[in-house]
Amino acid sequence: MRRGLRIATLALAALGLHAPATAGGPGIPWQMTLIGGQRMTLGDLRGRVVVINYWASWCVPCREEIPLLARYYRQHLSQGLVVIGISVDPGADGQGQATASIIPYPQATWVGGPDIAVSAVPMS
């Protein structure tokens, strides 16, 4: 899996996405609810390469990045890659989330756990 992580980190760098700050380190103890109601924690994904992508519908660079990330996700899904999108759009439901039907990877509609400072979008 270390080799896969290095490949994913290099590929994400090539896409212009941010590499993980602590590759191979412990994950953030988050709980999430995905579209469709599935609940998950990052602990459920232990041993897999996980990319969390923050985006917003009003963000032009986000809209340019999403097709690149979607293609990468499709290419490496069979190898165990997990990508989870988190929108920073304020939503009508009060949850602060929005979704896009063109995104093939799971979208979190609720995230609970330690706050992460998102200083700009897109951020992965």
Rank of each mutant, 00 (worst) to 15 (best):
I116M: 07
G47Y: 02
I86Y: 00
G47A: 05
R71P: 04
P122W: 04
S119F: 08
A120L: 09
I7E: 14
A108S: 10
P29R: 13
R74A: 12
D93A: 11
L42F: 07
G96F: 00
L81E: 15
P90S: 10
V82Y: 02
S119P: 07
V50E: 11
P67L: 04
D115M: 13
Q79H: 14
G113W: 00
Y105K: 01
P90G: 06
C59M: 04
H18V: 13
P67D: 02
A120F: 08
V60H: 00
P26G: 08
G112S: 15
P29E: 05
R63M: 14
S87F: 02
P67G: 02
Q97M: 13
L10A: 13
G94M: 06
C59D: 07
A92E: 11
G96P: 10
L45V: 10
C62S: 05
D115H: 15
S119R: 10
P67M: 03
G113H: 05
A21D: 13
A92V: 06
L34H: 02
Q38T: 11
S124T: 15
T109S: 08
V60K: 03
C62G: 01
A100C: 06
P67K: 03
Q75A: 14
E65G: 00
I66C: 01
A14Y: 05
G85D: 11
T99A: 14
M40L: 15
A98V: 06
G80Q: 05
E65A: 11
T99Y: 00
I35M: 06
G91S: 10
P122R: 02
A92K: 11
T41N: 04
Q107N: 07
Q95F: 01
A108F: 02
I7W: 12
W58C: 04
P20I: 00
I7Q: 12
M40N: 07
Y72S: 03
V49C: 03
V118K: 04
A8T: 15
R63W: 01
L68W: 04
V60E: 02
E64L: 12
A70L: 01
A11F: 08
L34M: 09
Y73R: 01
Y72T: 14
R71S: 07
L77P: 05
E64A: 11
G36V: 06
D115R: 15
L77K: 07
W110C: 15
M32G: 09
S101A: 11
G85S: 10
R63G: 04
I7L: 05
D44Q: 03
